[in-house]
Design a protein around this nucleic acid. Structure first.
Ligand code: FES
Ligand code: FES
Lengths: 150, 150
DNA sequence: TAAATAAAGGACAAAAAGGTCTTAATATAT
DNA sequence: ATATATTAAGACCTTTTTGTCCTTTATTTA
């Protein structure tokens, strides 16, 4: 009964914040270790590990084991990576499909009474996710105009 | 890890669909019983009961016990009731407050790197919820241009 | 090669959301 | 008054999400 209305699962929140932090480090050529990431974004370490594993499996971030290992974003990805990729990796593929009122299908031929209004909001969200770049978010951290904790 | 991105909790979905159905009946002067509601909107009966109880406690709908009892919407509410009231009754009050990335506070002075983009989407959603009237949704059902199940 | 460091993976635990069942309360009709 | 229909309320169960812990695997450095 008590769930926030829009947005991300905890997994997704941590995933986004972690990725932004990793991007920030990658911008200055450093790798970030799980321990540091979890501390910097104030997230549960082991849980964050699972999420980063997923992102690594989907090749959104790179992971390296051993001393001086950690996570980074490949230079060729760094400036292209958008929010929607992160979200899709974590929350799955069917994000933009289901009916907002929970009907089994969502289509304009058999719409629920909220279909068209809902679509507008969803499209706006979708646009936001597709156009927001991780490195831009990271730059906000670097220049001190945005924060990943507190 | 596997949660849909936007929108309503199941409780909210059922709550909205049930209310729209009740509104539809109220438009023609009838009460709707739990059993019929659950059947018409294809929702679990006992769970739906809980949700309707909440809505009744918040005075969004009226409930009457006994034979020919059931749920209805008071005529003076019928044309004013908007979606946001339903959502607020079920999912609580803090819907429009939290940070999209899960930071402890959401404000423009200490924004997360998604704050301003997020706000745009949230405002659009908020506007939609505040302007969409239940009776209009119900009319869509009546005239056959929208559906509450399938 | 051994020791140290760091991520990967799997089993498990806790919390929240979703859902059921049983009993009580209340209104109606006979 | 009694039987019946209907919602209210509380205890309980199930599934999903969130989170922890421990062992294994890979990499680096001494
Ligand atoms: S049918 Fe409900 S949102 Fe499309
Ligand atoms: S601070 Fe994150 S959405 Fe406002």
């Amino acid at each position: 009964m008590f769930q926030i209305l829009i947005m991300f699962s905890k997994a997704c929140e941590y995933g986004i914040r972690a990725t932004v932090y990793i991007a920030q480090e990658s911008l200055s050529g450093n790798r970030a270790s799980l321990k540091v990431i979890a501390k910097e974004i104030d997230s549960p370490e082991a849980f964050t590990a699972k999420i980063l594993q997923q992102l690594a499996r989907h090749n959104l971030i790179l992971s390296t084991k051993g001393p001086h290992g950690g996570f980074e974003i490949a230079p060729e990805n760094l400036y292209h990576l958008t929010l929607d990729k992160i979200v899709k990796s974590i929350d799955g593929d069917e994000i933009y499909q289901g009916c907002g009122l929970g009907l089994k299908a969502c289509d304009a031929d058999n719409p629920c009474p909220l279909h068209f209004q809902f679509l507008e909001v969803r499209n706006k969200l979708s646009l936001m996710l597709h156009t927001t770049k991780i490195y831009e978010m990271a730059e906000g951290i670097v220049d001190g105009s945005a924060f990943l904790r507190r």
